[in-house]
Design a protein around this nucleic acid. Sequence first.
DNA 1: GTATATTTGCGTCGTATCGACACATCAATT
DNA 2: AATTGATGTGTCGATACGACGCAAATATAC
Lengths: 285, 285
Amino acid sequence: MSIRRKYTIVLFNFVKYRIPVIVKIYQTRMQKLDKNLVLAQANDYCPGISLDCVILGFHEGKLKVLLNKFSTYTKWMLPGGFIYKDEHVDAAATRTLASRTGLSNVYLRQFYFFGDVSRTNLDENKDMLARQGFAKDDKEVSKWFLQRFFSIGYYAFVEYGKVKVHSNMDEDVAWFNLSDIPSLYTDHNIIIDKAITTIRSQLNSIPVGYELLPEKFTLTQLRTIYETILDAKLDRRNFQRKILSAGLVCKLSEVYKKWGQKSSILYSFDKNKYHAAIKNGIPVF
Amino acid sequence: MSIRRKYTIVLFNFVKYRIPVIVKIYQTRMQKLDKNLVLAQANDYCPGISLDCVILGFHEGKLKVLLNKFSTYTKWMLPGGFIYKDEHVDAAATRTLASRTGLSNVYLRQFYFFGDVSRTNLDENKDMLARQGFAKDDKEVSKWFLQRFFSIGYYAFVEYGKVKVHSNMDEDVAWFNLSDIPSLYTDHNIIIDKAITTIRSQLNSIPVGYELLPEKFTLTQLRTIYETILDAKLDRRNFQRKILSAGLVCKLSEVYKKWGQKSSILYSFDKNKYHAAIKNGIPVF
DNA sequence: GTATATTTGCGTCGTATCGACACATCAATT
DNA sequence: AATTGATGTGTCGATACGACGCAAATATAC
């Protein structure tokens, strides 16, 4: 037998028999680590309560939502987390947001408590655990993950350009157009809808523009945000008159050139006036 | 010894020695019953979550809040309850409201999730349990009552005249003027403030008048409600013009005579127009 | 009985605001 | 050179809004 033939056989056997074994060993180790981590953390969290963040950004004329997906699971979901037993809910939300976006000092507000019994879908959760590699009859893991969960909804406005989306082996993170969101885990589609409805109803006293836009922006961008949230067309000229006459923004000497068309004037917010106006409510529509 | 003297002594001894013993026996029985009841129920409830209702009524020109107080405890508190493990949160709120007011079909809305760690005051709760007659080291009772509690805040508008306030041995129930509320259990003062703030900020799309007033009412009563919630005076004539020109109310042929002064015209809501207007938002101030 | 105070019904008036639309400008495509 | 689409700037009429006036009705004070 030639040396080459011999090596080929060794290599073939290695690939066929050894690699699966090695993979299996590591998988088992990882799962144990994973499970221990999960259980240790589960003990530190308040039972039955989670929180989910609807993180909104604005890019190229579209409102976007940040979603994530476990690499072992099929459905996308809202970035969420649990509350430590000695932690303020708002702190837990801030922590969750920071872990996904790397941002702190973000406009983040609680908007609803989701308390439907049927929002906890046992079949869905069992499927997710199975794909994660946990045994069906694993009592400890089931006890945490197959309990009824309430969820506290938070929405956040972030500056799109400042968010660094970093997916890794275990988790994908990505922006989705608000108008084009797939079917999500549990009631997360409902949570997003409720967030938008809430924001819309309080739009006059929420600094959407200030939080979503970069330092310098055009009035068209600002208007587009309002139009998207209100799901209505606003008269360009009337909108500008309102914003300008209220003195909320300062005209800059720079212009924004891009799409072809006429270049548009850049503005920046007059921070003091803007926040004062928001407190009293800006009539937008 | 005269018969009278003999009876006196017997009666004296009875009062001095027997009655306390009998009372003690019954107290102990009641506490055991109480404890068993508490523990049995505690098992059926979602741990760590309560809900509190800010029940608002309107009477004699004042906004009122319904509060209750355990007869064994000093502080008044918001009518509250827990959520059964298989119960929708909103259903739990409806149930809590009905048990205190006897009313169903009430305008009841969730408005905030109170998630501060420090809202659970252990000393206060220990004091309450002690006054209720539970031993300090009673592990089972402590486990439920001395855990960290979140609370979901609900507000409700009820027609004052329809509520039957029924206090009993264990619990007092009473209306308080919104402007004159004592120091309450835990953060319940904060919860009321937050409720009012929330209602104020959404006043244009909340049917306060419709829910708080009886079938027939005067425009002054309606205006007073808005003035109280907004904490501002509204011009009587401008307010009437707005309400009337929007066609929200129908003028009745009856008048309201009471306070002396000129008798005022009674109105009733045009239900359809009113709810349509509320959906789009009535500009009030 | 008369005067006063208070509350109600029913208005007026000037200004600010809102919604609808016109027109010129600029850059890229046709 | 004409067209397209987005932008800056302005006009105009209707209406809504805030401020306020005045008479009528009823209780209290004298």
